[in-house]
Design a protein around this nucleic acid. Structure first.
Length: 248
DNA sequence: ACTTATTCCTGCGTGC
DNA sequence: TGCACGCAGGAATAAG
């Protein structure tokens, strides 16, 4: 193992190398935007890639800019590279994992049956906030990021500024379907690769080609064509893209 | 107990 | 060509 001393989102734990030395990854799980690397001896490495974190798997290690952690496995190297250093690593014993401050508040897994009309309804109950803000909050649904929220709302034809307490039943049903639909397509296409992302074998994703509103300010709307241009607004300090003609 | 603003970081695009 | 500046975003943390 080789460690870059530069700080990530949080400092890499002091006992990082000693704890993982000689151990084997038995299982890799995901919860929301978190990766869970289950090692033997009941050790779990909790990983968040932040904005620009990527894993690379190489036969030979050739140093590159922004490499932070190099795991030296028996036949291959696993390299963590992160330009903006928003990602982080934390070590847990399996028992204390479920009490992790990162995981304990996480909301519904969008691709499981757990996300359905009823669970969605329960989550918006007594809330008064925009649907964009609701979707972005990991406590509600775990794993939706800024790009996908704009795309999901465009797919549902719902304005990002609509209050959740104002949504009609049919719109909630459409939201549940669109969340699953957009995420599944994005995964199929290998992710968005807006700028930095690559999967561990170095492939980029092609969901960028499927984007219908995100990053397309002043472009003609995919559906209504010249009727309306894609608009960009800022919500909670994050950009939102939508079509004022298609989305109501 | 809430919600909202600020903070971290680097690369890229823009304007002068 | 070069430099300064603003912007991008996940989520913990600080501030309200």
């Amino acid at each position: 193992m080789n460690l870059n001393t530069q700080k990530l989102r949080f400092p890499i734990p002091q006992n990082f190398t000693e704890t993982l030395q000689g151990k084997i990854i038995k299982q890799i799980l995901r919860r929301g935007k978190y990766l869970l690397l289950n090692f033997n001896s009941d050790i779990t490495l909790l990983v968040h890639l932040g904005m620009t974190g990527i894993f690379k798997i190489e036969k030979k290690y050739v140093p590159e800019k922004h490499d932070h952690i190099i795991f030296n496995f028996s036949s291959k190297f696993l390299i963590y590279n992160d330009i903006r250093r928003f990602g982080f690593f934390k070590i847990y014993n399996r028992k204390e994992l479920n009490n992790s401050s990162h995981l304990i508040k996480l909301g519904i897994e969008p691709l499981k049956r757990d996300l359905n009309y009823y669970s969605f309804l329960e989550k918006i109950l007594n809330k008064s906030q925009s649907i964009k803000q609701f979707l972005m909050d990991q406590k509600n649904i775990a794993g939706l990021g800024n790009i996908y929220c704009s795309e999901i709302l465009f797919d549902t034809k719902i304005l990002p500024t609509r209050n959740v307490n104002d949504l009609k039943n049919f719109e909630i049903k459409k939201l549940v379907l669109s969340i699953k639909k957009v995420l599944k397509l994005a995964i199929l296409k290998g992710g968005t690769s807006l700028r930095d992302f690559k999967e561990p074998m170095g492939k980029i994703g092609y969901f960028k080609n499927e984007l219908k509103v995100y990053g397309l300010e002043n472009k003609n709307c995919f559906y209504c064509k010249k009727k309306s241009k894609i608009k960009k607004i800022i919500q909670q300090g994050r950009s939102t893209f939508y079509c004022s003609s298609c989305q109501k």
